[in-house]
Design a protein around this nucleic acid. Sequence first.
DNA 1: GTCGACTTGTTATGATATAACATCTAATAT
DNA 2: ATATTAGATGTTATATCATAACAAGTCGAC
Lengths: 133, 133
Amino acid sequence: MTTEEHVPSDLTRNQSLVLDLLEKSDAPLSAYNLLDQLRAAGFRAPLQVYRALDKLVAQGRVHRLESLSAFVVCQDPACIGHAATVFMICEKCGKVSERSDNGVARELHEMAKADGFTVNKTNIELRGHCGKC
Amino acid sequence: MTTEEHVPSDLTRNQSLVLDLLEKSDAPLSAYNLLDQLRAAGFRAPLQVYRALDKLVAQGRVHRLESLSAFVVCQDPACIGHAATVFMICEKCGKVSERSDNGVARELHEMAKADGFTVNKTNIELRGHCGKC
DNA sequence: GTCGACTTGTTATGATATAACATCTAATAT
DNA sequence: ATATTAGATGTTATATCATAACAAGTCGAC
């Protein structure tokens, strides 16, 4: 029994534990990295992490970075909308920054439209080096 | 011993076999799917496929779709340049189409520049439904 | 021929993700 | 209060994706 709540919401204990770790991390964490850090809290199996991640991703609080098979906390609550979310992944320090952009979203939707393609979800990941590296 | 060459180039036998399968496929193939199809040709282990894929990807003949952990043959030789390559993945039929776009590339580079971020590689994958689906 | 660079084959292992099923918990309908 | 039920959780096993490490073959340059 914890005496404090981890987030101001309807999250379950497992979801809160996973989200807390992601919020404290500078860089994306893999599901198994999260699992290892949560063993002290009683986690025993990957599914405990994956189920929490599924919910957090569905709620838009966490994003999965496909090119890393890892997860980051959402840095931009406005990312749910008409904008495209762009992740800039530093290949040196591992930090990821998130930006939303309407212009890119519009161009991508136009390109898709020209192909008769209907976009449900956009995934944009840039690899490179951040300002500090 | 085959009596015909698979591609007009310097590819090794394993690389040619992998590329041939990708060229004949409508949709992306996973490394293990390729392996299974190549057992008849003598393939025994994943590395035989991964090594061929590494070379093909490095040459730009094949792309890895991060969100699928699968591989497609390059549909647009012009994709190596200043353009951003965009993959449109149909979630119904599985087909993928590839487009290059300078406008999107420019916008992404501008956004990155504003952050002091230097882009080495862009990965853009759109999920949705193609014209036929 | 032999050296060196590259490709290949092989075994083992690591890393990521889900299926299937049992159990627990808490809100609510009776 | 008890039964119902929906969701969350725990657990074991397994599927899927990818690479490390090392031995052996191939082939051109010298």
